[in-house]
């Protein structure tokens, strides 16, 4: 969960689960997207705080659930890859079923979890 007290690790993206579909979604310049490649990457504290505000507002509005910031590393092609393995699985899908989840839908995620 996003808490303003925690130290923000950078760079960071904002992810959540869609209220109705449950799908993992990422905050982008144009709202929420299911594609991690489109995630807006906060590279400094100010941008990250803005993402936290987006998360708080989105949770209050109720369009998404479980919205929080995730610290990432940027792959050569720019794809943000979470530093923690939990979020890498959360984004990719089950490691034991490569035919399911975002790893099946997005070529840029395959074999990367």
């Amino acid at each position: 969960m996003a808490t303003t007290k925690q130290k923000i690790l950078l760079p960071a993206i904002l992810l959540a689960n869609d209220l109705l579909d449950g799908d993992v979604v990422f905050w982008t310049e144009r709202g929420w997207s299911i594609d991690p490649a489109e995630a807006l990457v906060a590279r400094d504290e100010t941008a990250a705080v803005r993402l936290q505000e987006v998360a708080a507002a989105a949770l209050a509005r109720g369009a998404v659930v479980d919205a929080y910031l995730v610290d990432v590393a940027l792959r050569e092609d720019g794809l943000p890859v979470p530093n923690h393995f939990r979020e890498r699985f959360k984004i990719a899908g089950p490691s034991i079923r490569q035919d399911l989840g975002k790893q099946a839908a997005f070529a840029h995620l395959r074999g990367r979890a």
């Binding site: 689960n17 449950g22 109720g62 959360k90 089950p94 975002k102």
Partner: peptide, 24 residues
């Protein structure tokens, strides 16, 4: 919006609906 997420969560759980990593 009649129910907040905090109010809804126990109700959905009593109906077997969890939020996992990738989906419900």
């Amino acid at each position: 919006g009649s129910l907040t997420e905090d109010e809804f969560k126990p109700l959905r759980l009593k109906n077997g609906v969890y939020l996992q990593l990738h989906a419900y």
